[in-house]
Design a protein around this nucleic acid. Structure first.
Lengths: 339, 339
DNA sequence: ATAATTATTGGTAACGTTTCCAATAATTTA
DNA sequence: TAAATTATTGGAAACGTTACCAATAATTAT
């Protein structure tokens, strides 16, 4: 199957290659009639521009890379799907790449831009490289989504972001539990030395307790172990198990990700605890499953779809020459059966 | 940030561009010493080959497209992640693209190959185009994963596949329920005129009943509505609701996807039914959630990871010039609390 | 009617690779 | 020692685009 090139089209139309090129690219300097003719012929011949050649010439690929840390989380799936739709509909390709929790996403991104000629990057989750990272070396626009704190070592005008105010939402969640009358609230946070959302939500937790005049019991804070930092059913489950084993008294759990909340529920119910009578459980994210799990799980629901839409929109804004922006969304506490 | 080209490297080394090219591509006709020198300089200068140029010349991009139908299903997520690892580790790019249930994936694929110069395609789920499809026009190797029946209108030697024997597994599942003593087994199948896994599993269901001498009650077969054919919590939930409303007597449900089983459980528990006392629930796929859901869900567990590994392996085999193959895996019934 | 502008056009040089081909240097064989 | 082979090399032509430039045709202004 031979490829049909712009030359074939030109020959078929009896015009020059540049005319065909102009027709394809909506160039102003072309007669409407010739353009129509060319476009018709193109359809007839089934011609599709060769992207490699185009990218080579334009020295810019029509591709957006999406780097995800923690792909297991269904939260990201929904986002990816929505962003993909937008990316494709604008004629771009989405290159998806996971990055291991132990990897530096700035390194991965840097490598990628060199070989791939991307015209934008979306970071989903993670960004452990916050402290003075190599992100500044990136010469393509990027937006970080679901990260939380502003990136250190990078100017605010040099990237876009969309997120909820994780600290405030963590505080809100904790206060909600406090208002419900829970006194010994455990929190399932992220990895200890991490800088991502988990730690921010934890900070909010501390703040809420402090404001309520309740001293923070460090035994109630369950960090994720170094060897498995991913938010998953499993880490939620084992955190709960660990909490039980350690014998710490608790009457509620705030898991900083829904998937962990699910795992926690399983552990509690398995060990004969009633939810929410013996222990309340609260999640964070607002994935579908919290609605369908039984008991349905109270959660801090992020406006996932909207955030996804804005994430890609923000990126394309910058590609189109506009300024970088930082969007902060409000999350909403959805009360369900676990509290 | 100017791009460093092969010319710069050549100049820096005092050699010709072709020598540099040879060094990069492990060409045999090059002196070991010069090669080392070049490689050292390359690292020094931070040179990375330009993919577009390379693809243009080789007229083959080092990219694998993964087309997924039904991205919401976590089953595919796990597969995607595993395949991606393999794809990246071999130096290829993974281009992920969802295809809407209403779209023809062969069309999408065809379009993609023309503009992207892919060197392989992986189809995940779907392939409604089974009847005499345009798949034959594809001039890149492809493998269909999780599809089930052999593709019609395409020679077996022209593509690879990995799957379980969906009909047999459906039969196995149904027989398992029958052996457990359930008599009125409802099945949540796919869309009625679909040709994908759902219908095969349904065929197995029919076969099992027939063999047991039980006439099939068509009222027990819940097809997915035309406007929402995706396997999801929601479609499982609403199928269950519909079944209840219709007043059909049933004592077990076989959902052809775990996510649907989860939704069904929710609906049954919500309406005061006990699982498995009033109704047994059985899923298919073997996603993590079935373990962590409460009650944990009996399922026909596919060897997801292995299937994912083999899927990309099969593709690269063909890329490396080997023959196409068809792999059939065995699924395993994992008995849990819902039966 | 002529000059000046404007609207279209085709030709061609890049873009950064790979790969064939011929050229040279190094080695082996006769 | 000359001839034949082999191991390395550099040069240059592609790959399919885009975009600049000059050329032509059509229009307007003088």
């Amino acid at each position: 199957m031979e490829q049909i090139t712009i030359k074939d089209v030109a020959k078929a139309c009896g015009v020059g290659v540049s005319t065909v090129s102009r027709a394809i690219n909506d160039h102003p300097n072309i007669n409407e009639e010739t353009k129509e003719l060319v476009l018709k012929k193109i359809k007839e011949l089934g011609y599709v521009p060769n992207n490699s050649a185009r990218n080579l010439k334009r020295s810019e690929g029509k591709a957006i890379a999406v780097l995800v840390k923690g792909m297991t989380n269904p939260f990201f799936n929904v986002m990816i799907k929505i962003m993909e739709e937008d990316i494709i509909s604008r004629g771009y390709t989405m290159v998806l790449q996971h990055v291991d929790p132990s990897e530096d996403e700035a390194d991965v991104a840097l490598e990628l831009t060199k070989e791939k000629r991307l015209c934008g990057i979306i970071f989903l989750g993670g960004i452990v490289t916050r402290r003075g990272s190599k992100l500044g070396l990136l010469n393509v626009p990027y937006v970080v989504s679901t990260i939380g704190a502003p990136l250190k070592g990078v100017h605010e005008e040099d990237y876009s972001s969309v997120a909820v105010d994780d600290e405030r939402e963590g505080e809100k969640a904790t206060r909600y539990l406090l208002n419900k009358g829970y006194k010994r609230i455990a929190i399932f946070a992220g990895a200890k030395d991490d800088t991502s959302v988990g730690m921010l939500r934890l900070a909010g937790y501390r703040k809420a307790l402090e404001e309520a005049g309740i001293p923070v019991d460090e035994d109630l804070i369950m960090y994720l172990p170094k060897d498995n930092e991913e938010y998953s059913y499993y880490t939620g489950y084992s955190s709960a198990k660990r909490l039980i084993e350690e014998g710490t008294v608790f009457d509620a759990v705030f898991a900083i990700a829904d998937v962990m909340a699910v795992g926690a529920c399983r552990a509690f119910l398995e060990t004969g605890r009633k939810i929410p009578k013996d222990v309340a459980v609260m999640g964070f994210d607002g994935i579908d499953l919290t609605r369908f799990y039984l008991p349905s799980i109270t959660t801090v629901a992020q406006p996932i779809k909207q955030m996804a839409i804005e994430t890609s929109r923000l990126l394309f804004e910058v590609i189109d020459g506009k300024e970088h922006r930082h969007l902060v969304f409000d999350a909403e506490i959805v009360e369900r059966e676990t509290t």
